[in-house]
């Protein structure tokens, strides 16, 4: 929508670019204070790559950030995961960032940033065993279906403990393990 007479829609589309926050690289580097405790740090080059990747993802997903970026919170959310390693830290952050914005759209903005981050982190560490492809290709689409269908239980749990009820894969059953062990040991 043009704001000045004679301004075309193409020119006015660029107004979305005014949303680009300042000091993006510096804010990412600030997260090193916390992540360093877990052996993870970003170099300036890493931070620049993450910022560039974020811009590409936001453009691809047709989203615009208007405040403090979710990426810093994503880093803080995942930094103590056993599946994050220094040699692929930046790459994993970019991957998770891409997944985050994709599924904000897939869930039609029904889920808050924190709820989605909590869900992603929990499933990344448990069901996915650190596999971002499984997180993106199986776990999140299954959950997104439920959210789009009207499920809202995550609001009361803040995104925690939500996947098991929708998981279609039979996974590790502690009770079954104990029973089999008992049967074997007492035979």
């Amino acid at each position: 929508m043009p704001s000045a007479e004679g301004e075309t829609m193409e020119q006015s589309k660029n107004w979305l670019e005014y949303f680009q926050p300042q000091n993006q690289v510096a804010e990412l580097l600030d997260t090193n204070e916390e992540t360093a405790h877990f052996g993870l740090t970003l170099t300036e080059k890493d931070a620049q790559m993450i910022v560039a990747a974020r811009q590409n993802t936001l453009k691809a997903q047709r989203r615009v950030e208007f405040g403090a970026s979710a990426t810093e919170r994503l880093i803080r959310e995942f930094c103590d995961s056993q599946y994050l390693e220094q040699d692929c830290f930046a790459e994993t952050v970019m991957r998770l960032q891409d997944i985050f914005f994709t599924f904000k759209n897939e869930m039609m903005d029904l889920i808050s940033d924190d709820e989605l981050l909590h869900f992603m982190r929990e499933q990344f560490d448990t069901v996915c065993f650190g596999d971002t492809d499984y997180l993106e290709g199986t776990v999140l689409p299954t959950f997104a279906d439920q959210v789009r269908g009207g499920y809202g239980g995550y609001k009361s749990t803040d995104g925690y403990g939500e996947y098991a009820q929708f998981d279609e894969v039979k996974r590790w059953d502690p009770e079954l393990y104990r029973q089999v062990l008992k049967d074997l040991a007492w035979k």
Binding site: M1, F19, V64
Partner: peptide, 23 residues
């Protein structure tokens, strides 16, 4: 001003909105 509206619109629970919502 739009950024402030976006924050209010999302109740502060989202740091981004879609292009359509921003427009």
């Amino acid at each position: 001003i739009v950024a402030e509206l976006a924050k209010g619109y999302t109740s502060g629970e989202s740091s981004s909105v879609s292009y359509e919502q921003a427009e």
